[in-house]
Design a protein around this nucleic acid. Sequence first.
DNA 1: TTATCATATGAACAGTCATTCATATGTTCA
DNA 2: TGAACATATGAATGACTGTTCATATGATAA
Lengths: 119, 119
Amino acid sequence: MHQNGVECCESVCVHEELLQKVTAQMPKEEALYDLAELFKVFGDSTRIRILFVLFEAEVCVCDLAEALQMTQSAVSHQLKILKQAKLVKNRRAGKSIFYSLADDHVRAIIGQGLEHIEE
Amino acid sequence: MHQNGVECCESVCVHEELLQKVTAQMPKEEALYDLAELFKVFGDSTRIRILFVLFEAEVCVCDLAEALQMTQSAVSHQLKILKQAKLVKNRRAGKSIFYSLADDHVRAIIGQGLEHIEE
DNA sequence: TTATCATATGAACAGTCATTCATATGTTCA
DNA sequence: TGAACATATGAATGACTGTTCATATGATAA
């Protein structure tokens, strides 16, 4: 039974030494989970669009909503997710709250993604 | 009403010129969608783990299942998604099918992600 | 303080998705 | 050909997620 991990296509595959190598190099469960969570944040076109707007300037929630033709509530919910992932930061200015990119990793990651889909 | 896009926090925000700048730089709808779809593929810890295994070697489905302690079916379903996104490729060798990374974008994207979560 | 503006948030609903189970496809060997 | 192995796949299910709606919080100005 392969599912039980006892043995598997023994004549062809590397198996033993491969398993050792793989488990040695594999990051910890928590890191893998955090990594997936991070990319999950990029995996929504609304959030991608928000990030592209923030590439251009620091923008308040209200203008973001207008730029993307979405409700203020929907934008605000997504901004919360982006902020939890530390992809954006914000500052208050009177009644408005301005959002901007947290660091350059955002540009780098999206840049790599663009390269891949433009092949 | 802000939701209707007529006017918005006029005294504070850049508004008009910002909107022009943003819409000029914003990629097309299709590109934004493709980009989100790509990151969605990275946004699952099972697929991340598969990719990490493939960082080390070309591996058959059966060994992947054992390395990750998952059923062959679950791994196969995820491999299909990875292949559709052109992140992995495969070749047949007898009864087995070996999977490997499609190109170096995968390493680059995951590398950027790792940098971000290791802050 | 009160009214208004800008933003945040909780609940609910609809759509999406990863896994499981059963089964199909395709290869090798006897 | 038939049996065993390796992989793929369709349907079903439970869990997750983005948007909407209603409302709450927080700030400004009169």
